[in-house]
Design a protein around this nucleic acid. Sequence first.
DNA 1: ATGAGCTAGCTTTTT
DNA 2: GCTAGCTCAT
Length: 674
Amino acid sequence: MLNLDYFKGLNERQKEAVNYLNGPLLIVAGAGSGKTKVLTSRIAHLINKNKAFPNQILAVTFTNKAAREMHSRVSKIIKNKKIGISWMGTFHSISAKILRKHAKAVNLNYNFSILDQDDQIRLIKNICKGEGLDTKKISPNFILSIIDKWKNKGWYPADVITKGNDKLEKEFLKIYKIYQEKLTDLNGCDFGDLILHCVKIFEKYPDILEIYSRNFKYILVDEYQDTNHIQSMWLNYLASCHKNICCVGDDDQSIYSWRGAEIKNFLEFDKIYKDTKIIRLEKNYRSSQNILTVASKLIENNNNRVGKNLYTNSDAGELVSLDCYRTGKDEAIGIGDKIEKLKEKYSLNNIAILVRAIFQTREFEERFLKINLPYRIIGGTKFYERAEIKDSISYLKIVFQNQDDLSFERIINVPKRSIGETTLKQINEFAKKNNCSLEIASKKLIELNLIKPKTKQGLISLINLIEKWRDDYKKKISHVKLLQIILDESGYSKMLKDKKDLENEGRIENIKELLNAMKEFDNLESFLEHVSLATSIDQDWEGEKVNLMSMHASKGLEFDVIFLPGWEEGLFPHQKSIEEKGENGLEEERRLAYVGITRAKKIATISFSMNRFYQGDWIDSLASRFIDELPLENLKKSNLFNNIEKEDFEFNQDFEYENEINSPGWLRYQKRIK
DNA sequence: ATGAGCTAGCTTTTT
DNA sequence: GCTAGCTCAT
């Protein structure tokens, strides 16, 4: 039976939000106001009231993590009922699911591959080469960003209107056109296409749209402030029948405009949907009064916002610390020392350091290794983006989908098979001329005896192996076993084992982890789908470790203790952000600061240093302008300078400071090395 | 085909 | 200071 307790833990506003079921609803949910609770309760309520079957509810998030979280929380409320909310997922995963069913409508096969950014760049580079474009003058990254923008606007190449005589733009459009053609040939699509193709299908085939728009009686959207134009269109189509769309978001936490997010969608929601009910959740359940006040006062400096008044019943709590250090290194030492003291009261897992740019974690890592303070870094290089993982997956993909040229190209000479640039070019040209896949082209070239003996041998062995693996796959060998076979027979394992350095050991570990992760899936197909849409396998939260991450990555998380180092002009707000987007960029940086501060439940510490070793040089830095915007009465300022004369400092940067010797971490380090 | 050596550029990165 | 990505020599 259903667990009806879900209503008890809600405040009046939250109850209203859960209860208001019919018609468009916009929930303006401040930081820590319990929006996930509202969303999950709402889903439970819909099911409980028999308003809809679980499969008639569409719940969209941006991240897999958020989707998982929502899933597990709903399952907890709806005990015993064995129902999956089948349409709960990210924009991309739900789009992929729809697209697999109707792939033919956009000239794809149901088993199309999904390209990640790496694949996209390689494809663009290829096209540029073919078109004689200098990739040094125009970076493929830039071209890709233009194409992405077009896709976000909902434009296929034919829809793009170029401005009169902008030659460069015309060039980009040409590349876009070829790019889309190539994708079709590859039987693949990129992340943008997943959503764009869906929208185009909805537009062109009302009968298909009807299946979905009729089915989705209720739609819920998380982090609505981060949607872009095409996602908003996508939602409009799906909500067109019942118009029961409930979007939750916080304009103050919109920090992904550089990925195409438009706060406009959020701010103008009630213009798109008539009779929109707006509910504000302004009671904060997370932070102490001091923390909340500091964050609120800061964000008040933004002009472009709905404006809200967060309040809390919590105690004033500790003042927010504002620490000034002499150098970045001192900052790392100081924060390390503070954590040493705090860890008696708080679990390390509940302490986080949030930085603007991920390279800033280095200084902390160095220090923490030295004092033996365990830490984990969240974000950084994504698991599935690691070379060895991508190689493994490319092998699997080429077995599964024989048109996947990108995968074929990736592994053709990994491990080395004496197949170099020239041969690859030859294969590519042959494939282009005969309109076939690279694999077929290779076979033909071998038959025609057009390849040098040594290279030929390598190529033949690869092709035979691929065919053998396809046989294995048909024989229903488990996908885990299949990858093991592939890695052994291709010589990949041997390649890693032969190269004995630290990095390669890590690679072998990663592959083991991959094999482990694969076990969670029933078959190759579902695993590959997961891989295409996921970026990381679940971080291990095991053990007691301090968390290091970017402020972006911290959105949606909370910790007892938060450190916010590096609040210096140029670094935060970041120079580039202001240069590129002016006032809007600055406001987004300020929202980022707001997100950072509001992650803290009990203790927040902001810091900056006067000197920083940055990009190979010592630079004098200025405290961030955001620091001037913080309310003094909620702050506790300290200068954590060392008692060392300036001369000493300049003569010897690596001087071991006296106070360092007394720090707990340093003492333990001394013990350890004895 | 492959590795050494040099140069340019350096945010954030849900999918 | 670091590193990715390219050129050039082997």
